[in-house]
Nucleic acid binder design. Structure first.
Lengths: 141, 141
DNA sequence: TTGCATATTTGTAATGATTACATTTGTATT
DNA sequence: AATACAAATGTAATCATTACAAATATGCAA
C-alpha cells in the first residue's frame, strides 16, 4: 500500500520516465494518498519538503504521467482538474456537501452502447455526484 | 425537433424562469443545435443576432438553467465546461481526433455499485473518449 | 576529471475562462 | 408617470493553466 522509493522509481522506469527527485515525490504522493488531488494541492503539500518546487514542474510532470499512462485525469467538476494514479476502470463519486471524491468498483464493460459500435474507445469514465454516507448521517444525527 | 419560440417560452415558464429575449435565444440554441457548446461558443453565435449580448448574461443564464434542471454541465474535457439541454440519462463520447462530442443511449442504472449503497446519488455521468467512426474511415480511406 | 550536450526544473509573464460587482436597461404594477 | 424589482451589461478581478526563457542538473565522451 505504501511503496518504497525504489518501487516508485521502477514504476517510472517501466514507463520510460527518468526517476528524478521531483517525479518520484509527485508519483509517490499520488500513489500513497489516493486522494484525487488538484495540481495545486500536490504543490501545497510537496513544497513543504521541496521548497524550490515550482508549480510548472507539477504541471509538466502530471502531463508526462498522463501521456505515459501512469495517471489519468478526473474532470468530475468544472474548474478543477484532478489526477489519479489508479489506471484501472473504476468510477468516481463526488459529494456535493463535503467535496470528497470516492472511488467505486464498477463493471463498465457491461454497458456496451450500440451506437458506438464502430468507434474506437480509449477511455471510459463514470462520474456520480450526490451526498455521501458521512454527510447523510451528519444531517440525520 | 425545432421547437417554436412559444414552446421554448413555455419550457422556461414550466421551470419558473421568466422568458426574456436572451433566455429564449440561449435555450433555443441549446435545444435546436444539441452540440454541447461552451459558453463562448453560444456567445459567438448569438452575438451576431443580439450585438449587445454580454458574456456575463450567457454565464448567468446557464447557471439559472443548471439550477432549475433545464440543462446540465458536461465536464468531459478539462478547461472546457460544456452545456447540454438534454436532461435524460445518456452518455457522451468525445473524439480525440476531431473534438466532436456524440450522445449515446446507455442504461446507467444496471451498474448499481455496491459501495454506494448508502449514498444519495443525484447525477450520473458516463464519459467515453477515443476515435469516432468518421475519423476512423478518414484514416483508412 | 573536465567539458559539452541534453534533459529537467524553475520563475515570470501571458492567456483564457469564469466570477464579482456596480451600472444600466427593461418590465410590471399602482 | 412613478416606483420597485428583475434582468442584462460592461469592466475589472480572480484563478488555473500554459508559454517561454533562464538556470540547474545529469549523462557521456574525450
Amino acid at each position: 500500500m505504501t511503496p518504497s522509493v525504489e518501487e516508485i522509481s521502477e514504476h517510472l522506469l517501466k514507463h520510460n520516465i527518468k526517476p528524478s527527485y521531483q517525479r518520484i515525490k509527485i508519483l509517490e504522493y499520488l500513489v500513497t494518498k489516493r486522494n484525487h488531488p488538484t495540481a495545486d494541492e500536490i504543490h501545497k503539500e510537496l513544497v513543504k519538503e521541496i521548497p524550490s518546487l515550482s508549480k510548472t514542474t507539477i504541471y509538466n510532470t502530471l502531463k508526462t504521467f498522463i501521456e505515459t499512462n501512469l495517471a489519468r485525469v478526473i474532470t468530475i467538476e468544472e474548474n478543477e482538474t484532478r489526477y489519479d494514479a489508479d489506471i484501472s476502470d473504476h468510477g468516481h463519486f463526488k459529494c456535493d456537501e463535503c467535496g470528497s471524491i470516492y472511488d467505486f468498483r464498477v463493471n463498465i464493460d457491461i454497458l456496451e452502447p450500440d451506437e458506438l459500435e464502430s468507434f474506437k474507445i480509449n477511455e471510459k469514465n463514470v462520474y456520480y455526484s450526490g451526498i455521501c454516507k458521512k454527510c447523510i448521517s451528519k444531517e440525520e444525527g
